[in-house]
């Protein structure tokens, strides 16, 4: 089981890339009422996608947190649905690019 993450809000510049990349929407910003990005650890599946997109390297693993297995499974289901939607968008875009290529070469 991968450890969940937490955000060090000191160096965070609120660019929101982590929030927008998170497949389980575990990172809250607008609903916090303050300009701080906060991880809802119950929704985090430890996929590390947010760590990779963070330009400030301010997201770290929380080795102490022990996830609830039921909530973790439910978050994984959400992540799979997100990944499927994203794949759909990417495939549609690739197909459109391919059609453009074929059209200009025709």
């Amino acid at each position: 089981m991968l450890p969940v993450v937490e955000i060090d809000i000191g160096p965070c510049i609120n660019c929101s890339l982590c929030r927008r990349a998170c497949p389980t929407e575990a990172i809250n910003y607008f609903s916090t009422g303050k300009r701080t990005h906060v991880v809802d650890k119950e929704l985090c599946i430890g996929c590390d996608i947010c760590v990779k997109v963070c330009p400030m390297d301010c997201i770290d693993q929380d080795m102490e947190y022990k996830p609830d297995p039921v909530k973790l499974e439910s978050a994984k289901v959400k992540a799979r649905a997100f990944a499927k939607r994203q794949r759909g968008v990417r495939v549609a875009r690739r197909e459109r690019a391919q059609r453009a290529k074929e059209k200009v070469h025709a």
Binding site: R93, R94, R96, A97, Q98, A100, K101, V104, H105
Partner: peptide
Amino acid sequence: GLLREMVNADPDNIE
């Protein structure tokens, strides 16, 4: 966004 995908699909197309 789409143009990046088009460049990826057809890197030789300078247009």
